[in-house]
Simulated scan of single mutants.
Amino acid sequence: MSLRLGGAVALAAAYVAFTAVPALAGPTLDAVKSKGQLTCGVNTGLPGFSSPDSQGKWTGLDVDICKAVAAVILNDTTKIRYTPLSAQQRLTALQSGEIDLLVRNTTWSLTRDAQGLDFAPPVYYDGQGLMVAKSLGVTSAKQLDGATVCVQPGTTTELNLADWFRAHNLSFKPVVIEALDEVNAAFFAGRCDVLTTDISGLAGVRASVATKPDDFIILPEVMSKEPLAPVVRHGDNQWRDIVSWTIYALIEAEEKGITQANIDAKLKDPDPSVQRLLGVQGDLGTGLGVDKAWAYRAIKAVGNYGEIFERNIGKKTPLKLDRGLNALWTNGGLMYAPPIR
């Protein structure tokens, strides 16, 4: 190959590598556009993540992720049908096509990933915990030998519980109840000594269900890793990309100081990375199958990731959760967006 020809080939390769290629239309995107509505599977009622008020208005961190995706695709956060699903129903509902997107405090695991599901980036890094009444007189999970434990079936929670007790040579008696409100009611009625689920869920239940929240403690042991992430059907790469990059855009917005309130002013920010994110420079939406203002709409609709966190589960909410692992990578957390360019 001549030097001239080699240079031409290299130039062509570079052009292809750095030029956005229009995405092939995917079945889920087409379906959402056709019906003019996003069907989002959510929890039946988990304070801080997804729960309806007395008027049927849904709020929470997971709900805001649904809204961000709807803003990207439909430019309207009201065009969402929230489908409340139990732990046992959720994955079947997604695989059957009943819902377009599952954002329901679902743990990303190898088994689930291999079952015809694809996961977007985690929106909350959690861990499984145990809650007891202070009157039980225990301060560590290692004191729970022989305890009765309320747990939902069909969850990683149920599996982790058995693993942890077995690993520590402890016994327990499971009280298995499918409905979330019923398992919570059973615990507060004294049918079991312990309630177990993700620590964020325990904080939400204690704040919203317990008559006297201060009478209950979450024990210090963290029993597992629980990266909670939105889920899509396997094989629809375009839809997974849209959901994933919507989440990354919310994280990047926090890192760049872009908020729901200042985003219009940020359109004049000279920072090239801000201009690319907001669609002022270039057109990164083409590769996803959306327009160049996709990230602008998501951030304008729900704010950046930090705003979503603080509004729904942060220190000024009943859950009073620290950022912890969910802080930006620049602050010692795990929230990190790949380059948006």
Rank of each mutant, 00 (worst) to 15 (best):
S2Y: 10
L3M: 11
L5R: 12
A8W: 11
A10M: 14
L11Y: 06
A13L: 13
Y15D: 11
V16F: 14
V16W: 11
F18H: 14
T19Q: 11
L24R: 15
P27Q: 12
T28K: 03
A31P: 03
A31H: 11
V32Y: 06
V32E: 04
S34E: 12
G36W: 12
Q37G: 01
W58R: 04
L61G: 00
D62W: 10
V63N: 05
I65L: 15
I65V: 12
A68G: 02
K79S: 14
I80G: 05
I80N: 06
P84D: 07
A87V: 06
A87T: 15
Q88F: 12
Q88N: 12
L94I: 11
G97D: 09
L101Q: 07
V103M: 06
W108S: 10
L110D: 12
L110H: 10
T111I: 11
G116N: 13
A120E: 03
A120I: 01
P121Q: 09
P122I: 08
G129R: 07
L130Q: 10
K134N: 14
L136D: 06
L136E: 05
G137I: 06
V138W: 05
T139G: 13
Q143F: 02
G146K: 12
T148R: 15
V149H: 00
Q152S: 15
P153L: 12
G154V: 10
T155V: 05
E158S: 14
N160H: 11
A162W: 02
D163M: 13
R166P: 06
A167H: 09
A167G: 08
N169F: 03
L170V: 05
S171M: 07
F172Y: 13
K173L: 04
P174R: 09
P174T: 10
V176C: 06
V176M: 04
E178K: 14
D181T: 07
D181N: 14
V183H: 03
A185W: 03
F188Q: 03
F188L: 13
G190W: 08
R191E: 11
V194I: 10
V194A: 01
L195H: 08
T196H: 10
S200K: 01
G201W: 00
G204L: 06
A207I: 13
V209M: 04
V209I: 15
K212I: 02
P213C: 12
P213W: 04
D214A: 15
F216T: 00
F216W: 15
V222F: 02
M223F: 01
A229M: 04
P230F: 10
P230V: 04
V231P: 07
R233Q: 14
H234S: 15
Q238P: 02
W245A: 02
I251P: 00
I251Y: 00
E252W: 08
A253W: 01
E254I: 09
K256M: 13
T259Y: 09
Q260D: 08
D264M: 05
V274W: 01
Q275W: 02
L277P: 07
G279W: 03
Q281A: 15
D283C: 13
G285K: 07
G287L: 04
L288C: 06
L288M: 10
D291T: 13
K292F: 01
A295Y: 02
R297M: 09
I299M: 04
K300F: 07
V302H: 01
G303R: 02
N304E: 03
Y305S: 07
R311C: 06
L321H: 03
L321T: 01
L321G: 00
D322R: 12
L325W: 08
N326E: 09
N326W: 07
L334S: 04
L334M: 08
